[in-house]
Computed example of a mutant assay.
Amino acid sequence: MDTATLIGFGIAAVLIAITGVSIYTAFGPPSAELGDPFEDHED
């Protein structure tokens, strides 16, 4: 394969991995530990 193709696949894999981890953190089991800053500072 060409070097540019490998770099492109590498960048795409990293972006997909970051997106997957972000979705898992936002909506998966770890989301129970997330706090809402708007609820923390109610008047």
Rank of each mutant, 00 (worst) to 15 (best):
D36A: 02
T19I: 13
G8R: 04
S22A: 15
F38C: 00
A17P: 05
E33R: 13
G10C: 08
V21Q: 11
G28W: 00
D36F: 01
Y24F: 15
A17Q: 11
A13D: 15
T25G: 05
A4E: 14
I23H: 11
G20K: 06
G35Q: 14
F38R: 03
I23Y: 13
I23T: 12
T3M: 08
T5S: 09
I23C: 03
A4N: 09
D43I: 00
I11Q: 09
E39S: 02
P30R: 10
G35A: 10
G8P: 03
A4S: 09
G28A: 02
A26M: 07
L34R: 15
G10A: 09
A26L: 08
G20Y: 07
T19P: 01
I16P: 02
E39K: 00
I23N: 06
A26P: 02
I7W: 08
D40A: 01
G8S: 07
T19S: 15
I16E: 10
D40I: 00
G28S: 00
I23R: 11
V14K: 05
I11Y: 12
G8D: 04
P29F: 04
D36M: 03
L6T: 10
E39M: 02
T19C: 08
G20M: 05
G20N: 11
S31R: 06
A17W: 13
E33F: 09
G10E: 07
T19H: 11
D43F: 01
I16F: 15
L6E: 14
D2A: 08
D36P: 01
A4F: 03
P30L: 04
P29K: 15
P30V: 04
F27P: 02
D2K: 09
A26H: 07
I16M: 15
G10N: 11
T3E: 12
Y24C: 03
F38S: 00
T25K: 12
G8T: 02
F27S: 09
Y24S: 06
I16C: 13
D43L: 00
T25I: 11
A13P: 07
T25C: 08
F9L: 15
T5H: 05
G28Y: 03
T19K: 14
H41E: 11
A12K: 13
T25A: 14
G28P: 01
P30S: 07
Y24K: 12
D40R: 02
I11N: 07
V21A: 14
T5A: 08
P37S: 03
G28N: 03
T3A: 12
T3K: 12
I11W: 12
I7H: 07
G35D: 05
I7Q: 14
T5G: 00
A12V: 09
I11A: 15
T5P: 00
I18M: 12
I7A: 14
G10I: 04
G28H: 04
I16L: 15
